[in-house]
């Protein structure tokens, strides 16, 4: 990064910002009924849902803001939103 040359920032450096602290609701990926459609990953605005293996997805709570899109769009209702305990 170079502030002296007009604020040039390093690629992908926002990963230092752990937006998971914003969460009021938390998605639980049960990994039981998953059919592997991948919509949770595709629709995640944070890009923090990953596929571990076929029909098994997980979320990175470091960044997940708890918007609930994954749970809402899950084809097999396998993701549950619960209240975040802080």
């Amino acid at each position: 990064m170079r502030l002296d040359l007009g604020a040039i920032a390093k690629a992908g450096s926002s990963k230092a910002n752990q937006t998971g602290s914003w969460r009021n609701y938390k998605p639980i990926f049960h990994q039981v009924k998953c059919i592997g459609c991948g919509l949770c990953k595709i629709y995640c605005p944070e890009g923090c849902v990953t596929m571990i293996e076929k029909k098994k997805y997980t979320v990175d709570y470091t960044y997940c803001k708890g918007c609930g899109i994954c749970a809402e769009e899950c084809s097999s209702s396998d993701i549950e939103m619960i209240v975040e305990e802080k």
Binding site: A7, I8, A9
Partner: peptide, 19 residues
């Protein structure tokens, strides 16, 4: 792949003028 023209808040803008 650098980012040009980032947003700088009160914590750094003044330094850009100083430079």
């Amino acid at each position: 792949p650098l980012t040009f023209g980032a947003m700088v808040g009160p914590d750094g803008y003044m330094e850009t003028r100083y430079f």
